[in-house]
Simulated scan of single mutants.
Amino acid sequence: MSNIIKVSKEDIIYHIKISCQIPSLLEAIATRKIITETAEKEGIVIEIAELQQSADNLRLANNLIKAEDTWAWLQKHYLSLDNFEEIAHLNLVSAKLAHHLFADKVEPFFYAHQLDYSAAVTYEVILDDEDLSLEIFYALQEGEISFQEVARQYIQNPEIRRAGGYQGIRKRSDFRPEIASAVFASHPPEVLKPIITPKGAHLIIVEEIIEPQLNDPTRVVILSDLFTNWLKEKISKLEIVATLGDDTNSSSSA
C-alpha cells in the first residue's frame, strides 16, 4: 500500500456530509455572510493599519512567531497568504461591527443584569454520603478538621486534591441554581451546610464574593455576548439552502 493517500474535493464534501457537519458548516457560512453584508450596509471602514494589527493578532493567537511558523501553519490548513488576510479582515470586521452595533448597549445591559456578573472564590468536596457530609460539616465548624484534610481524603482528582478542592473564580452562572443561591447569600469566609444535588452532597467553603465591576474584561464579554445573540437571532430567521452539486440539497431552517 502506498504511503500517500490522495483526497479530492469530492472526498472532503462527502466526509463532511456523512459526519453530519453540514448544518454547523452552513450556519458558519451564513454567519460570515451576515457579518460582511451588515458591515457594508453600516459603512464599516477598515484601515490598513487596523488590518495589519488584526493580522499580527492572528499570528499571536496561533503562536506564529517566525515567518516559517506562518508558512507551516498555512500549509497545514491549505491556506494562501490571501486567505490569511481574509481571516484577519473578517476578524476585524466582526469586532468593529460588534462595537458599532452594541458599544452603547454594554453599560445598560450590565446594570440590568448586574447580579449575573458577581463571582465567588470557592473550595468544594463532593461526597456520596449525606450523613458523612453533615458529620464533616460540623467537624469543620468546630475546627476538628481542616478543609485541606477533607480534600486530601475525599477528592479523587489529583490536581484538585492538591489544590485543596479549589474551584477558582466562578460566576453565578457557573454554579447550579441551588448552589448559587447559597454561595451568594453567604458571608465569607464561610463553610456552607451540605447542599444535595444529583452529583452528591456538596461541602463548600466560600472564601470571597467578588462584586461585579464594569471593567474592560467584563465589557468585552458583554459585547461578545450581545453580538453572538444578535447573530443567532438573525440565523434563526433564515432558511439556509446548500447546492452540493449532486442530487442531494441540504436545507436548514434555523
Score class of each variant (00 low, 15 high):
4 I>Y: 08
10 E>N: 12
11 D>S: 13
11 D>V: 12
15 H>Y: 12
17 K>F: 11
17 K>H: 10
20 C>D: 12
20 C>R: 13
20 C>H: 13
21 Q>S: 13
22 I>R: 01
26 L>V: 04
27 E>W: 00
29 I>L: 09
32 R>M: 04
36 T>Y: 11
38 T>N: 06
38 T>Y: 10
39 A>E: 05
40 E>T: 12
40 E>F: 11
44 I>H: 06
48 I>K: 15
49 A>E: 15
49 A>S: 14
51 L>R: 10
56 D>L: 13
59 R>M: 11
62 N>A: 09
62 N>Q: 09
63 N>Q: 11
63 N>P: 00
65 I>L: 12
65 I>D: 02
66 K>L: 13
67 A>T: 09
67 A>N: 12
72 A>E: 15
74 L>Q: 07
76 K>P: 00
77 H>P: 01
78 Y>T: 09
78 Y>P: 00
79 L>K: 13
79 L>Q: 09
84 F>M: 09
84 F>Y: 15
85 E>A: 12
85 E>H: 05
86 E>Q: 14
87 I>Q: 05
87 I>P: 01
88 A>G: 06
92 L>F: 08
92 L>Q: 07
92 L>E: 02
94 S>N: 14
95 A>P: 00
97 L>K: 08
98 A>T: 07
99 H>G: 02
100 H>K: 15
103 A>V: 06
106 V>Y: 05
109 F>W: 10
109 F>G: 00
110 F>G: 02
110 F>D: 02
110 F>S: 01
116 D>L: 07
117 Y>D: 04
117 Y>L: 05
119 A>G: 10
120 A>Q: 02
121 V>Q: 06
130 E>A: 14
132 L>R: 12
137 F>G: 04
138 Y>H: 15
139 A>H: 04
144 E>C: 00
146 S>A: 08
150 V>L: 06
154 Y>T: 12
155 I>E: 06
156 Q>H: 10
156 Q>D: 14
159 E>W: 03
159 E>F: 08
160 I>G: 00
162 R>P: 00
164 G>R: 08
164 G>V: 13
168 G>D: 08
169 I>M: 05
172 R>M: 14
172 R>V: 14
172 R>D: 01
174 D>T: 03
175 F>G: 02
180 A>R: 04
181 S>Q: 14
184 F>Q: 04
184 F>E: 06
185 A>S: 15
186 S>H: 04
187 H>S: 14
187 H>A: 10
191 V>I: 15
192 L>S: 10
193 K>T: 06
193 K>I: 13
194 P>K: 07
196 I>A: 05
199 K>N: 12
201 A>P: 08
201 A>G: 07
201 A>L: 09
202 H>T: 09
207 E>M: 03
209 I>K: 04
209 I>D: 07
209 I>Q: 03
211 E>A: 14
212 P>R: 11
213 Q>S: 12
215 N>A: 11
215 N>R: 11
216 D>H: 09
219 R>M: 05
220 V>S: 13
222 I>F: 01
223 L>H: 07
224 S>E: 15
226 L>E: 00
227 F>S: 14
229 N>P: 00
231 L>R: 10
239 E>F: 01
239 E>D: 07
240 I>Q: 02
242 A>Q: 03
242 A>E: 04
244 L>R: 03
244 L>H: 02
246 D>I: 03
252 S>V: 13
253 S>E: 04
